[in-house]
Each structure stands twice: as structure tokens, then as C-alpha cells.
Design a protein around this nucleic acid. Structure first.
Lengths: 231, 231
DNA sequence: GGGTGGATTTTGTGATAACAAATATGACGA
DNA sequence: TCGTCATATTTGTTATCACAAAATCCACCC
């Protein structure tokens, strides 16, 4: 059940289901608008509805899922305003985390991030799109973890969770910057040189650059499924 | 079950229990370190353990409660570092919300806040300490609501939830600023005059002024109960 | 009298079952 | 052929139950 995603030290079934669904949402393994059915999920995971219900309740209260009509839940369909708000907050808060990371994480952190980034670029070259999304998520979460601010990290994870379903759009983006000027590399340089404001600006550039592209594609990312719902 | 706290439009029992516990935590109705027992809560609310368990799981995933040993949960006992982090983030994010509120909420918002603040001061004079805490919470949440940024509001609520148990310390603080220079009044002036940076600075002053006092008292706020746990 | 070992009780976990509401299905009639 | 109403199925909700692990208690022994 834990595949490649590192150790999950959840003991009870409810927490396991929660972490599994949460990570799947952050890595865009569900499509916006998709309705989640209790018994289907439970059967798929080989557990009873009770712990699944617990997991869904947790995700709803983090806005990782939307409560539809007091009965069913679905993967969020974001309005443009909400999506913009999330991206603004991500830029602000991930920037803050990156600056803090640059202050007191040595070059060790930079090397860790570089390894992740290179795995991500390999995934791009080889068209392994799921891995691309997973490595990108890992890059950002690792960076924010280096800030050693657990409350901030948790908030940022929550923001990723909320815009997770749209991250799939990243796989459609052909960015025009040359390979050796990817914002991630500037972030890494900021950490390596202990330059907080460089790190902050680079992260903000990454988020807003790709965020703007996602915003442009938002209708088509939501589209196929938001049309499916009312039909 | 809904007392004075405004309309709660939760339909299912689990959500009702969740909202009840959440608001009680934000308003410091529980003491740090207190262990929450499933069957006791259920009996007290006249429901079965199942929905209570759902509510507790939601609160744990928002860090409004701490998972003790993979079995029991307790009201958080905050370290100084964590408390400081929460207060820093509150200053930043509530400041951001206040600035946004000043930009596009007219004097109507200012009057609403003034009414809440005056109820709060009345509660101070008459030593109604629970009401003091409730009105203070209402002031901050109403202010942040005026920013019309639901994602940001939710994050700030989460931060209040996490430091809620410590807010009880506010009742012990005799602040030295004259009555007509309370930071809340400056916030209101910022809104009334449409001055975002005044509103931001005033909120930040409020949070850090009272936050510093709470930090000084943190050991004694945690103390009685964190001593209770190991004994 | 104090400490240790076992039994009892407490407490959380998760599956099942009973219920209710909503949705889907299908037949009948216009 | 299409709409409508009744029925059947699906689906979420919550209480109950069975179980396991932890904590408590009590007796017994040193």
C-alpha cells in the first residue's frame, strides 16, 4: 500500500486512507469534478466504509474535497478567483519558506533539491508524466520542509492539496525558458549561496510563471468534468 | 446545541460535533494538555462514538488537536518555537487580510467591527471573560472575512484553532495602552478611511503586542496541565 | 509496607447493520 | 414517442458490536 512514496507511519486504517487520498490529490491523480463514492473507495482499498468516511471528512475540512449537497463529495472544481487566490498565497508562503530555508540550510539541502529536479527533468524527457508531477510536488515540499517551520509547511501542503487537481495541466505546458534557467535551478542557487531573497524571488517566479499558464488553461482543465456533472 | 454562536448549518451529526469542538477550541474553552475521551464526549453530546471520532479526526488533521500515542488525543501543548511561528504567521496573514479588507470594504465593515469591539470592551469591564474571548475571536474573524478571500480566511481560522487553548491567557493581561488607542480602533480607522497599510500595521501590532504577552506566560499556561500528564 | 504480577476495566478501532434519502429504473398512459 | 409516477437500487449516516491494546486495580508476596 505504501509503494514508492516514502514511509507512511500511519497505524490505523483511517489515517492510511487519508494519506493515500491526500497524496493522490496533491499529485493530480484525480480529475476535477470527479465524484467520490464511499463504498467504491472502500471496496477498492479493501476496507469498510467507516475509515474511508473518516478520511473524506478530513479532506473536506482541509478543502481538499468539496461537499456537494450535504451528501456527496467531489474533487474540487475551482473558480478562477479561488485559483488565483491559492496561487497568490502559494507565492507568498512558499517564498517565505524558501527564504527561511536559504538562511539556515547549508548546501546539503541544495544538493537534495538538485537531485529531485534532475529526476524531474528526466521524467519530462521520457514523458513519464505521473513521475513529473510527483517529483515536482516533492521538490516544493522538500524545499518548504528545509525551512523547519512545521506550521508553515502544513499550510503550504494544504494549498497544494487544494489546487492539486489542476496540476495535471503542468504536463501540457511547454515553457520557453532555456533548460539551464529553470526557476528551480535559481532556487537551488539561492540555497547554495545562502541568499534568501534570491530563493524567495525564484520560487515566486516559478509559482507565478506556471500558475499563470494553469490559470489560462483552467476552463479546459475543469471543463470536461464540470460539464459532466450537470448533464 | 447551537446557543449564541450564530446559525450552524451543519446537517449531519459529525459536522455539528466538529463545529462545536472547533469553536470551543478557538475560544479557549479547553485547557492545554486536556485529554479528550471518545465515549465521554459522545455521552456528553448524546450521540454515538462514530461521529465524534470523525470530528476528532478532522481536528487532528488541522492540528487543532494533537495525536498523543496513536491512540488518544489531547488539546495541544505548544512549544515556544511553535507558538512563535503561529504568531508570526498570524501577523503576516491577518495583516494581509486587513489590508485587503481596507481596500474594498466600505465603512459598513468598520461599523460592524466597532460594534463587536465595544461589546468586547463591555465584557472586559464586567469581567465576563468567556465573552471577552468570544468577541475578540469574532472581531478577528469578521475582519478577515471582510477581505473576501475564503482560502486565506480558512488558513487564519486554522491558526487561531492551533493557538486557541492559549488565548485564555488574554484574560490575564492588563495592557498599558489607553482605552482610545486600542489597536482594534486603529484597524477600524484603517477600514473607515480605506487605508490598507494602516489596517495592516494595526493588526500586526495587535497580534504581536498581545502575542508577546502570551509567549511570556506560555509556561504557566501550559504548566498546570503538562505537569499533569506525566504524573 | 511497598513493589510486582495478573485480572478487570477502560478506551480506541473498524466492520456490520439498520435506516433514510436520493437516484435510477421501468412500466404505464397520454 | 415522451412524460410521469411507482418501485427498486444505490448511497450516505449513525448506532451497535466485537475486538485488541492500554491503563487501572487489587491481591499477593517479598
Amino acid at each position: 500500500m505504501d509503494e514508492e512514496q516514502g514511509v507512511i507511519q500511519a497505524e490505523n486504517v483511517g489515517a492510511k486512507v487519508y494519506q493515500r487520498l491526500r497524496l493522490d490529490l496533491m499529485r493530480s491523480r484525480f480529475r476535477p469534478g470527479e465524484k467520490l463514492k464511499l463504498r467504491d473507495l472502500a471496496a477498492g482499498l479493501g476496507v469498510s466504509p467507516t475509515p474511508v468516511r473518516e478520511a473524506l471528512a478530513r479532506l473536506v475540512s482541509e478543502n481538499g474535497l468539496q461537499q456537494l449537497d450535504h451528501r456527496s463529495v467531489r474533487v474540487p472544481v475551482l473558480t478562477e478567483a479561488r485559483c488565483r487566490e491559492i496561487l497568490e498565497l502559494r507565492a507568498e508562503l512558499e517564498g517565505r519558506a524558501a527564504a527561511r530555508a536559504a538562511e539556515h540550510s547549508g548546501p546539503a539541502g541544495a544538493e537534495m533539491l538538485l537531485a529531485i529536479h534532475e529526476r524531474m527533468m528526466a521524467a519530462v524527457r521520457e514523458r513519464r508524466l505521473d513521475d513529473l508531477l510527483a517529483e515536482n510536488e516533492r521538490f516544493h515540499m522538500t524545499l518548504c520542509g528545509l525551512a523547519r517551520q512545521p506550521v508553515l509547511l502544513r499550510i503550504i501542503e494544504g494549498l497544494w492539496l487544494q489546487c492539486g487537481p489542476l496540476q495535471a495541466g503542468l504536463t501540457q505546458i511547454r515553457m520557453k525558458h532555456p533548460r539551464d534557467q529553470h526557476p528551480h535551478l535559481e532556487v537551488i542557487r539561492g540555497l547554495r549561496e545562502g541568499d534568501p531573497s534570491l530563493a524567495r524571488l525564484a520560487v515566486q517566479r516559478d509559482v507565478s510563471l506556471y500558475g499563470d499558464e494553469l490559470l489560462r488553461r483552467l476552463p479546459q482543465l475543469n471543463g470536461p468534468l464540470s460539464a459532466e456533472a450537470p448533464a
